[in-house]
Design a protein around this nucleic acid. Structure first.
Length: 156
DNA sequence: TAAGTGATCTCT
DNA sequence: GAGATCACTTAA
């Protein structure tokens, strides 16, 4: 799912204006066992959206100043999400939310035009093979040698 | 390299 | 309720 999101558009509606940003960098957080995932210590008030339906935003606040944008994946009751780390023109997960004015008001909301933040396929890339690379995830050294090394960061 | 910043989590 | 931590950014 993380790979699928690469090359697609993150679309933000503000008033009547639509802004589209091609997603270029993501990270996967998968299941109960993933020690790098907020869900590794079970259900909490904060990570609850990760346990819900796929296609819903999980937006949380960290480091006292940054909002992180994730989209929930997987079946209900199975915690998994993809962190949107970068788009064309914006690199860095906190900068995306800063520039697109994304905060807790999107948390637990569906990714649809109705909510003002969603994902669209990219017709430009329908027939183009993207060169996708991967690496360990960023900023998760606390997760131990196994989980911090999982190559679940994907980027174009 | 380190400060900034405050919500959240764990432990008492 | 206290203390530690944090899926980061910026300025030095």
């Amino acid at each position: 799912m993380a790979r699928e999101l690469l090359g697609k558009y993150l679309v933000r509606r503000r008033g009547k204006k639509l802004e589209r940003f091609m997603i270029t960098e993501v990270e996967a957080y998968d299941g109960f066992k993933d020690k790098a995932s907020h869900a590794s210590r079970g259900l909490t008030k904060r990570n609850a959206p990760m346990f819900g339906k796929a296609g819903v935003w999980y937006v949380y606040f960290t480091y006292g100043m940054h909002w992180m944008l994730n989209i929930v994946t997987g079946p209900e009751d199975y915690p998994a999400a993809v962190l949107i780390r970068g788009t064309e023109g914006i690199s860095g997960p906190a900068r995306i939310t800063k520039y697109l004015k994304i905060d807790k008001k999107f948390n637990n909301k569906s990714a649809t035009p109705k909510t003002g933040l969603w994902v669209e396929s990219n017709p430009r890339f329908r027939n183009l093979k993207l060169e996708i690379k991967n690496s360990p995830r960023i900023g998760v050294s606390y997760a131990g040698s196994v989980w911090s090394k999982k190559p679940w960061r994907f980027f174009i």
